[in-house]
């Protein structure tokens, strides 16, 4: 059986909220190392890869590998019943029809229990190659969100260019052009505000802003976001979570002129 207890329901609520507009039905693959999810959007342009490591739960028990086929819209309805600070426990049998969710508020001695019906999902899994990215940029997640939202007001696409001097986001639209350049910047007192650039070669790629704005719904999960780029490969956008867990998004580039 599976039994996984999260100190705060907030984490799962935010993860599901961040991905539910991108993917609808997906398997939560549970094994002794944790709970993983990999799913592509309908157009096969973006991919969500979530890993909640066993260490992120306390306690965590998973006797047998189990895939929990969940409709995220339905899960959202159930999670709405959990307060952010509630202790959340996920439970399932070895061959489950339902996922049992328990929300506890230890202050008020409230215990809520929900059973979510599961579905059989035949999910297409992709092998994501280990990539040595040419550019890795770490920046505040709210800054990245602001840039994407601002540029989307002008255009559907953004060009991202990185050099050792900085990272430049630019777009061209019907009403005009826009560009934002961030230079490497270290703030000793507020390390969350740092912009860090590691570069082995310059990169220039074009991406759909619609997807990037969607990924930015995860900004509430982490103060910083990491962008990993290499020419002609999908962009990796990573939000690191506590306990080496993560929420990653991959986005295929736009190619050719």
């Amino acid at each position: 059986m599976l039994e996984a207890r999260l100190e705060q329901a907030d984490l799962l609520k935010k993860v599901v909220d961040a991905i539910k507009d991108l993917v609808q039905d997906c398997n939560f693959d549970c094994n002794d190392s944790g709970v993983a999810l990999q799913a592509m959007d309908n157009s096969h342009v973006a991919l969500v890869s979530m890993m909640l490591k066993a260490e992120s739960f306390s306690p965590y028990r998973c006797d047998r590998n189990v895939a929990l086929g969940v409709n995220l819209t339905s899960l959202t309805k159930v999670l709405r019943a959990a307060q952010n600070e509630d202790i959340l426990t996920l439970k399932a049998e070895d061959a489950p029809d339902v996922l049992n969710l328990v929300f506890e508020n230890t202050d008020s001695d409230r215990l809520s229990e929900y059973d979510l019906k599961l579905m059989d999902i035949d999910q297409e899994h992709l092998g994501i190659p280990d990539t040595e990215y040419a550019a890795t940029i770490s920046l505040p997640s709210v800054e990245f969100r602001r840039i994407c939202v601002d540029l989307m007001a002008l255009s559907e696409s953004v060009s991202i260019e990185t050099s050792k001097d900085g990272i430049k986001f630019s777009c061209a639209g019907d009403i005009g052009n826009g560009a934002v350049t961030l230079r490497p910047n270290t703030n000793v007192e507020k390390p969350d505000q740092n912009v860090e650039i590691e570069l082995t070669e310059p990169v220039a790629l074009t991406f759909s802003l619609k997807y990037l704005v969607n990924f930015c719904k995860a900004a509430g999960l982490s103060k910083t976001v990491k962008l990993c780029l290499s020419n002609e490969v999908p962009l990796l956008v990573e939000y690191a979570l506590a306990g080496s867990s993560y929420l990653r998004f991959y986005l295929a580039p736009k190619i050719g002129d």
């Binding site: 592509m40 157009s43 096969h44 342009v45 973006a46 991919l47 899994h125 992709l126 092998g127 994501i128 190659p129 696409s157 074009t206 759909s208 490969v233 999908p234 991959y250 295929a252 580039p253 736009k254 190619i255 050719g256 002129d257």
Partner: peptide, 14 residues
């Protein structure tokens, strides 16, 4: 204009 690629072009079957 550039065209949107899909992930299948880059990521194979495991």
């Amino acid at each position: 204009p550039p065209t949107q690629a899909t992930l299948g072009k880059f990521f194979g079957k495991p």
